[in-house]
Structure formats: structure tokens, C-alpha cells
Design a protein around this nucleic acid. Sequence first.
DNA 1: TAAACATTTGAACAATTGTTCAAATATGAA
DNA 2: TTCATATTTGAACAATTGTTCAAATGTTTA
Lengths: 118, 118
Amino acid sequence: MKQVPTCKSVTVGEYVDEVASCLPPDDKIVDLAEFLQAFGDSSRIKILLALSKRELCNCDLSAITGLSVSAVSHQLRLLRDKKLVKYRRDGKKVFYSLDDEHVEAILRIAMEHIGERK
Amino acid sequence: MKQVPTCKSVTVGEYVDEVASCLPPDDKIVDLAEFLQAFGDSSRIKILLALSKRELCNCDLSAITGLSVSAVSHQLRLLRDKKLVKYRRDGKKVFYSLDDEHVEAILRIAMEHIGERK
DNA sequence: TAAACATTTGAACAATTGTTCAAATATGAA
DNA sequence: TTCATATTTGAACAATTGTTCAAATGTTTA
């Protein structure tokens, strides 16, 4: 950044350092952002909501979401890498499910937040 | 999408329609994705975590996060539009805070999820 | 083995994103 | 009014993203 943060008024400086020192280190910030970013796409939300009902294979997810098999696979890889889903192979199929209760909780709370407004 | 979802094995068709009918309508999916996408950036995570400690103005947020005043303002506009933060003007300053407990809860749960692994 | 089914992968592409910079707007004090 | 401070805005740009398509990889059955 190029602009120097000035903010000359009296209140500044009293709590800025205190809040700044509360922030996690940069690598944790990045992990957090990447984890939450994985929720931030309509295709992935559809996949995650479907998986919140039951374990599903790539092919089923394609039928349910209306996305191509390839698109679903690409998104599942991302969701796997970011630890939102886990999987198990059963013969030709690979069954996916939500990684843990945190993922479910975030979906539920976000639904609540959306539902309340408008 | 161009590829027809086939998935010819026996298990298919039993629950696909059932799960599909559980999914919210498209506009709600989009709202959900846009809300959660707003969490998915390191700069915005820093801003949100800072705001989880206390109400802060644009200028303070710039000092705390190390981002330019302009970059913070652009991100705050997005966070406002997506209903993650609210604000009040006090003289020359505009103080921002988290919109509600849902936003706080999502940050907390995501921190837990990140904290548990590795 | 070959064939069918299911999934994954990589390249390409358009679309979206986050930052910077400069300029504009808003507020309070002199 | 003019000045200083604080915030917002819009254009530009590089960087990232999500999808498609074609090809490759796994797995089971014949």
C-alpha cells in the first residue's frame, strides 16, 4: 500500500495497536480466507447443500445440481483441498460427504442470516 | 452444461430427485453464495476479525490491517452490500461493526475448523 | 483381455476480482 | 467562505476464477 494511514483525530492510537495485536498471524488469515472462500460460489453451495442431506457420488451431484460431471469434479477437488468435504471410494464410484459439523454449521447459520433479511 | 448426467448404476434415481427437491430456489442459492463469498478474502477477513473486537472507522482499519485507505473503503462497501457489516457516521468518521451474531458465529466456527487441523 | 462406467485432469477461455491512483464528496473547524 | 480531515468513487490493470472440451485414469464386468 502506498497511502499512509493517518487518521489524526483524538480517538486514534488508543486502541489501534491493541486490536492489531489481536489479529492472527498472516498464514492463519490466509487459511481462514481460503476455507471460507470455498463456500462462496453458487455451484459449490448447491453441492454442499446436497451433501448436507446425504453422502453422494460425483455423478449424482451432477444430476442434482445440473452441472456437468467435469464441473462437479473440479469443484469437489477444490472442496476436498480446502477441507470442506471428505470422500470414500466404493467400486467405480466415489462418495462425498461434508467434512465435519463446522461445515454444516456454517451453512446453517448463513441460511439463517439470508432467511431473516428482506 | 453439455454432458448428460448418466450414472447408470443401481443406486441412482432412488434419492436424486428427493435431494434435488430439498435445494432452495436459485435466487436463494445465489444470495447464500454471495454472502459467504464476502468472507473469502484475506483483506476482508482481517477487517472482519478487527471489527469482531470493536467498532472501528475506515482510517483505523487501514492502520490495523496495513491496507490502503481506499482498499479498505472498497472492501467495506462490499461488506456493507452483502450485509456483513453495518455502520454509523459520527462527524467526519464512519464507524463500522459486524452486522449481527451470525457473522461473528461464522468467523468463530471457521477459526475452530482451521485451528483443529494440522 | 476388451468394453462400459465413473471420475479425474489439463489447457483454454471468458468473466470476475482486488488493488492502485486520482478525483470527488462529506463533515467540522477556523 | 476556506481549509484540513475522512471517506467514497470510478477507471484501469494484473491476477484469479469457473466452465467447457478432450483426453486420461480407475474400477468392474463380460
